[in-house]
């Protein structure tokens, strides 16, 4: 039963990891590409971690949830990476399909210096 659950979760996760990278490869400009990896991939990894936990619980080693650490870490860091990359792209004037907002010249990291 748990093995079946793990199998389904694994396939679900692999599908989203693949979709994230497919989006990265095929979407037309940088800002649209930003969408694929930052979340489809994150959800995919969430499913893989859940599969891991289900598998570990099924294999008789007792319940172990430390894979949640990777997941929590990723859910905190993925938006930060995307935000910083997005701002770098705005500042550098990376081509975009739609007119981007004006980049902030005096961004917060410079202000603290």
């Amino acid at each position: 039963m748990l093995e079946a659950l793990a199998s389904v979760l694994i396939l679900f996760g692999a599908f989203f990891v693949l979709v994230g990278s497919l989006g990265l490869a095929r979407l037309p400009d940088f800002f649209t590409r930003l969408h694929g990896p930052t979340k489809a991939t994150t959800l995919g990894l969430a499913a893989v971690c859940a599969a891991f936990i289900a598998f570990a619980a099924g294999s008789g080693n007792g319940l172990s949830v430390r894979e949640l650490l990777i997941l929590v870490f990723l859910f905190i860091t993925a938006p930060v990476s995307a935000f910083v990359l997005g701002r770098a792209a705005l500042r550098r004037g990376t081509p975009s399909m739609t007119p981007p907002p004006a980049p902030l010249e005096d961004a917060d990291d410079d202000r603290h210096r």
């Binding site: 990891v17 994230g20 990278s21 990265l24 940088f30 590409r33 930003l34 694929g36 990896p37 991939t41 994150t42 990894l45 990723l74 993925a78 990476s81 990359l85 770098a88 792209a89 550098r92 990376t94 081509p95």
Partner: peptide, 14 residues
Amino acid sequence: APEDRVLALDTLYI
């Protein structure tokens, strides 16, 4: 763009 490459690296490690 260099941003694309960094994003690709990011995806690659995930």
